[in-house]
């Protein structure tokens, strides 16, 4: 694996009595989409703001290509980011919004037109951004992140406000950025958004990393030894299988997953109990299930009301 684009090491930051970051450490590598996941208030946005030099930390370092952000000259050519899609002057058109940003990096105005084209905003480029939908603003934010053609892209909740078509587009877009060799960090609090998109998962809670793992391995581990059973009588099936020592979870109206006993034994047990079933197959865990499995034991994820750090 090549040298990481972003290295975050031991970040600690306190807002009043709230410990926002509590030893946050991870790395983001080129060519991969790294999902940055965790509940609201886990410290994802704060970490990103620290990486961008917007917030100071009490302890720790955040480096871009081995340098602190504030030392970068023309930083948008090193890292492109989208923190808040609403962060624009409503009176400026998309093109003018990107124009000043391009000028701040010594880039020509035509670069603005190029990224507008790339995110599919050409037809609205000269309209006031104040009239944009949230989805369009997300695209504009992505365009701003791409402006300096940076090797590192960092996006905070880019799926927010996007319609299904936009979500599909965004997934493909993130994949293509990684395929171009860029390091991509994408935060989300909804695991389903990152399905089939993220290569690596950094799960955080209460200001620190809970797990830092590859998505493939995670899903394999979560799927291992689990069997999916389709039945019109999930309650009866569950009773029969649990009596035999299996662990059963309901995943749908007519589907349960079973672990602890193999598929042959399941078929036998269901036949013996005369429970009807239409399918018994190896279970493929979704990213969401894998994530829940991963975080089941971590106290940081217990369903308390998370305290969102006000910004």
């Amino acid at each position: 694996m090549s040298a990481p684009g972003i290295i975050v090491a031991g970040l600690r930051k306190r807002f009043g009595t709230t410990l926002a970051l509590d030893g946050m450490s991870f790395a983001v590598h080129p060519g991969l989409v790294t999902g940055f996941v965790g509940p609201n208030g886990a410290g994802k946005s704060t970490t990103m703001r620290v990486v961008l030099g917007l917030d100071a930390v009490d302890e720790g370092t955040a480096l871009i290509d081995g340098r602190p952000y504030r030392r970068l000259r023309r930083p948008l050519t090193h890292v492109g980011s989208l923190l808040d899609a609403a962060a624009l002057h409503p009176g400026r058109s998309a093109r003018n919004h990107l124009l000043w940003l391009a000028h701040s990096q010594g880039l020509p105005g035509r670069r603005a037109d190029q990224v507008i084209e790339e995110v599919g905003l050409s037809s609205a480029a000269r309209r006031k951004a104040g009239g944009y939908s949230l989805g369009m603003r997300q695209r504009l934010g992505i365009a701003a992140a791409l402006l300096g053609d940076p090797p590192i892209i960092m996006l905070d909740e880019p799926f927010n406000g996007m319609d299904p078509e936009g979500i599909v587009w965004m997934r493909g877009f993130l994949r293509s950025l990684a395929a171009q060799g860029r390091a991509v960090l994408v935060s989300s609090h909804l695991m389903s958004e990152l399905q089939d998109t993220a290569d690596q998962l950094v799960a955080v809670g209460r200001g620190k990393v809970i797990a830092d793992t590859s998505v493939t391995g995670l899903i394999e581990a979560a799927s291992r030894n689990r069997v999916a059973v389709r039945t019109t009588v999930p309650a009866g099936a569950t009773t029969a299988l649990v009596r035999a020592g299996a662990t059963v979870a309901a995943v749908g109206r007519d589907t349960i997953t079973v672990s602890g006993i193999g598929p042959d034994r399941i078929v036998t047990l269901l036949n013996d109990s005369t429970v009807p079933f239409s399918e018994v197959s190896a279970h493929h865990a979704t990213l969401e299930e894998a994530y829940l499995e991963l975080t089941r034991n971590a106290v940081e994820f217990r369903a308390e009301t998370p305290t969102e750090v006000p910004r």
Partner: peptide, 15 residues
């Protein structure tokens, strides 16, 4: 810039 948070973009572009 503070009201619409564009200041973040400004300061990220020019630290």
């Amino acid at each position: 810039e503070y009201r619409n948070k564009m200041i973040h973009l400004t300061l990220a572009a020019s630290p």
